[in-house]
Design a protein around this nucleic acid. Structure first.
Lengths: 201, 201
DNA sequence: TGGTTTACCGAACATTCGGTCAGTTGACAA
DNA sequence: TTGTCAACTGACCGAATGTTCGGTAAACCA
């Protein structure tokens, strides 16, 4: 035991990571604009000024949170661009992966989906998000062109409804209770790809 | 022409209705908490203080807007409680009607769906919304019990995904361009009830 | 014409906002 | 025991917030 564990109990108190994760929780409860630094301080159990010891300010907290969501999505896009196979099957895999990311990084993705573009930080995030949306649109377009999607459905509309459904998970999903990410993805894909209607009826 | 038309060109200027509709537009662009009375004044082409000549304050604008959305939804619920027939078919009709309301009152419903509960006004709206959700949950539960919904899908999950999809329309729908409310409802119901996958594949 | 009403402005208000800064505290190493 | 340093406090700043109020000018009615 020449050197003790490098990450020992470092006094008690916060670090940039704990501040970020608690702050994002409050942002999602009250909305970013509806959250004051005083609100954050209360949730952290410290005074307002202590927050500035760990992070540069409110907008940087938002920027870091949004990057976590977007980085996750773009890692998947990078993997998936190299994939082959029928577009409808690649789409199914992308939906499954999106649900996984949304569940794993739920607070960060939730925050991302609520961004309106009120600051440069928010507009930059919206720009990256549009890039992600374009990737999905292209994939749905391919699946439609290959005949994998019902011909009576507009591919642009399918894109919006499909990812509207995926994104709506942030509104109610709570990791502790309820289904796992995989079970959730299974149910969502069954419903969206094959329909909720029973064939017996 | 003993009496001129009662709603003549009343000077030019605003009234409570025009203030509300413009304000709701700005609320949806920037978020309620992200919108200052100065922002509203700019959008209305008047000074801040002029707004108080027409409406009691910012929170009252929100309250009136939320009531427009909720009143529409509950009018439908009242109609539908008296309906008969298979639950799966009543569900289909409720989804169609919900899309219609969402399109007709898009700005108001959009605002409602973003409420977080930061004030008494917002909490009251959330309470009414939960009541609406309970009605939908019950209807989906009936449809499942009658065998109208695939047995491998959890009814609670179907409720959330189905209305998550419907509600996500507010994120992108623009009444001027794109499909009509009926066409949109047709496509959504086809996709959610029968699936997007082509049977040919 | 004169008086009333409607729509509005400009200045001010108390409060809250995000952020700064000079200290204080307490765990730890030497 | 002493010195170091990260974590934190409390007082404070200027700017922005929602709201109030006294006044004003134009349209309308008698």
């Amino acid at each position: 035991m020449a050197t003790p564990a490098p990450t020992r109990q470092r006094r008690r108190g916060h670090d940039p990571e704990s501040v970020l994760s608690i702050a994002v929780g409050v942002f999602n409860e009250r909305g970013y604009d509806g959250t004051s630094m005083e609100d954050l301080a209360r949730a952290l159990g410290v005074t307002k000024s202590a927050i500035y010891h760990h992070v540069p300010g409110k907008e940087q907290l938002l920027a870091r949170a949004l990057d976590r969501a977007l980085d996750g999505l773009f890692e998947m896009v990078a993997d998936e661009r190299a994939a082959s196979g029928a577009a409808i099957e690649r789409l199914e895999r992308v939906v499954r992966q999106s649900v996984r990311i949304l569940v794993d990084r739920q607070p960060y993705v939730t925050l991302l989906l609520r961004v309106r573009g009120n600051s440069r930080t928010e507009r930059a995030a919206l720009e990256r998000r549009r890039e992600f949306d374009a990737f999905i649109s292209h994939l749905v377009g391919q699946a439609a062109a290959e005949g994998g999607i019902r011909a009576d459905l507009d591919p642009a509309l399918v894109t919006r409804l499909l990812f509207g459904t995926v994104n709506s998970i942030t509104e109610w999903y709570h990791p502790s209770r309820g289904a796992s990410a995989d079970d959730l993805a299974d149910a969502l894909i069954t419903m969206m790809f094959d329909g909720l209607r029973s064939n017996a009826a």
